[in-house]
Amino acid sequence: MNARADILDRIRSALRDAPAVPEVPRDYRRSSGLGGEELIELLTDRLLDYKANVFIEEAAAVPQRLAALLEGTGRYAVPHGLAESLFAEADAHDGGSGRRVTDAPGQRLSVEELDGIDAVVTGSAVAVAETGTIILDAAPDQGRRVISLVPDRHICIVRAGEITAILPEALRRLDGTRPQTWISGPSATSDIELERVEGVHGPRTLDVVIVRG
């Protein structure tokens, strides 16, 4: 017998007492009454706790904020689906778009190229305020998983409408079969004496720009 048949056979044999399939009680919170400013406030509090940097902006002020954040950094990567207009201010400072490198289908950045890039700017799919989690699902404004991983600084744009209060609300908005990265603060470890230390292999700096409206 092959291993597959053998294992399935063993498992069926182990269950020969035919245990009843239990009902799953879902009495936990599946939605919350929070909205608007409360969500922004809660998400901000949790992100700061993780030592992320948080900037809350009106939509019109985002290009300015990005320009300020990118001031002094070298080259930065962006996914092809992120609106160019977001970088109008940064380009104006630079006198062109020289520092910006776009990862696009047919024009992929190699791992080596990404390793030489200082920062990445992406959008996000959904956020969970209660846990300070931002979820990326590789949509065109977020790009391939690798671009938000290799550069040492991740500037992530979260639109207020993406923010949910609790995890079950967030998961309802997502397609589980898309490649996902859930991010809760910068890379960290608790491996030495169980004390949390920020900054290991993932981006050591996480800047979150929350966009109102």
């Binding site: 209660e130 846990t131 690798v146 490649p179 996902q180 990265t181 859930w182 809760s184």
Partner: peptide, 28 residues
């Protein structure tokens, strides 16, 4: 994903969770 991080490292959420479904062309 609510039970595990709080029980293990005592965090509201662990810094990173990755999900993948088979092969995604051009990604990973």
């Amino acid at each position: 994903m609510q039970l595990l991080p709080r029980s293990s490292t005592g965090e509201r959420m662990n810094p990173y969770t990755s999900l993948w479904t088979g092969v995604t062309p051009d990604d990973g």
